[in-house]
Amino acid sequence: MLNLTKQERLVLLILILIILLGTIFQYVFKKFPRVAQAMSVIDSETIYPKMDLNQASVTQLEALPFIGEVTAQRIVDYRQTQGKFSRLDELKIIKGISEAKFKRIAPFFKKI
């Protein structure tokens, strides 16, 4: 039979607890996506000061959640070739920014 010390039993229990909690959280986040979204404070617009879409540099855009290097570059390229954005909606024209993605990134920008 397993002959574990008190510390080893504690470690084993903690491991089981983490796996169990992880499974529960994963189930809850999949079943209720809004809970996952509400929980994600680090990626929410609450933390970030609203950015001016017509002034932001590539580096500043890339620092925002959900915007990677490629998307940030495309936004700045569009601004340079087509002129400043007159509405936030125009972001949907840019390749790689779908309706769903637009809804996620729009709250990080000031209204135009």
């Binding site: 983490i18 909690l21 992880g22 959280f25 994963q26 929980m39 994600s40 680090i42 933390i47």
Partner: peptide
């Protein structure tokens, strides 16, 4: 992934 999920909850609680 299970560890990552628990970690996400803790990180976001700390940030909040």
């Amino acid at each position: 992934l299970l560890f990552a999920t628990c970690l996400k909850v803790m990180i976001n609680a700390m940030i909040m």
